[in-house]
Write a protein that binds this DNA or RNA. Structure first.
Lengths: 88, 88
DNA sequence: AATACATTTAGACGTTTATCTAAGTATCTA
DNA sequence: TAGATACTTAGATAAACGTCTAAATGTATT
């Protein structure tokens, strides 16, 4: 985790789209896979990158794993970007 | 240019540090090189990635090229991140 | 005009990344 | 408990990336 991982995670368009999906509602891995033309293995990889960066959390419920957006990391990045605008 | 390029550009720590340096003052390529233990060629590459993403602009003055932070692209990214927090 | 200085461009090299297929793990259901 | 479903892990591959050295370009100075 940390800045490096967060920015790296956000640098891929598939992962940004996943984040946008999770903004509206929590979704299972399978639901997310359905939104892309990509194998489940690939999406699983992207989810693990996002999770590792702290941008999403997962919640296993029986057969399913629900993914959820974690806004606190988003806040950190927002803060860094906002600081660029100050006191020049 | 576009989101993709901006996020990719921000995903490297050297480039983020360059941006932080430029937040305080405009600098020549050489001034920037002096802040890193890396060849001028490598820094030049990073500057070109940042420029291509619209995050910095350059201003040639004779022998020197001054680099400057472009906040409008920072604003776009800020807006995208901020939108993740809304109306969930 | 010749040399020095500031910076970029070209080309090479090792590492990381995104994707795939195939196999593994875990949970549910008949 | 056997098979189906949901998801991940392992291993492979091609492309992208970050860095370097060497060479090129453009500008200033003498």
């Amino acid at each position: 985790m940390g800045f490096q991982d967060s920015f790296k995670a956000l640098s891929d368009p598939t992962r940004r789209k996943i984040i946008e999906l999770l903004k509206d509602k929590n979704m299972t891995a399978g639901d997310i896979v359905d939104q892309f033309q990509m194998t489940g293995a690939s999406i699983s990889h992207h989810l693990s990158v996002l999770k590792n960066a702290g941008l999403v959390t997962d919640d296993k419920q029986g057969k399913y794993i629900y993914y959820e957006l974690n806004l606190s990391v988003v806040e950190e990045i927002l803060a860094w970007l906002a600081s660029l605008k100050e006191e020049k």
